[in-house]
Amino acid sequence: MTSDLARFYQQMYVIRRLEETLLEMFSAGEINGTTHTCIGQEATAAGVISHLDSERDVIFSNHRCHGHYVAFTDDVEGLIAEVTGRTTGTCGGKGGSQHLCRGNFYSNGIQGSIVPVATGIALAERERKSGAVTTVFIGDGTLGQGALYECLNMASLWRLPLMVVVENNHYAQSTPEELAVSGSISARAAAFGIPTAEITTTDVEEIHATAGSAVERIRATGEPFFMVLDTYRFSPHSKGDDTRDPAEIEARRASSDPIALIADRLDPELRADIEQAAERRVADAREAALAAPVAGAVQA
């Protein structure tokens, strides 16, 4: 049986290689448009989503959704095909990187606008008595959107099984947290009477433990929960748009790369197998996507 640790490593490694591959494909001209990678942030996806059941629970994610998508659906192939505009993509090439839908997974590209929809989903699941936890992933940048606070209010009033996960990577595109976020993040939710947790680690095992208590609490009470996770993206906001101090990025990479953090905890042979399998899977998915029919091509 695969241990949690091995599963986290496998998921994070696949997500990392998938996104590095997407960036390579952009550089190689194999992808059109844009993408937002979560390189460095993989632990939030792996640690939180391991508590969710893709048959029952629901996720609404944002523009930086690849990690959440893969951790929840394991659909590496559909994602690469979607971003490369293939008919075999998750949404037939219509959605692209930030507009995904598969089963109980949804994502959309407008900051803050996903929270109301997730609130409605949580309301529906409550009415249906499905037992589902609806998780919405937002970032520190989203904290500037008023709709978020309307929804915290309603989720608390209506006792909705909604988990709001703030992935605080400290930058909203190019704007540092200091210029956009006042006061305390978790106190914002606490003011609505919503229980909160805040941790400052990118260690997936610690995130997993914190998220586990949160999900358990939501399942037991049916009430919302607000979780703030500290993280850092090593990659640019989208492709080449990074104005952060390279020394800062390097320091965070050295201290808090979630993959490196747990690598030593795994048996080296198992680790090598996981890495090899992930490399192969991503390479195969890339090849399959490029071989698949281009969406909207005129039939000969």
Binding site: S113, V115, G120, I121, L123, E125, M154
Partner: peptide, 26 residues
């Protein structure tokens, strides 16, 4: 009473709440 939900004054979100319910079969 269980199918009529009176809300705070939050139109910016209420359209999304309705969308979320509709996505999930209501």
């Amino acid at each position: 009473p269980e199918r009529v939900i009176t809300t705070p004054i939050s139109e910016a979100s209420l359209f999304g709440v309705a969308a979320g319910m509709a996505l999930r079969g209501y």
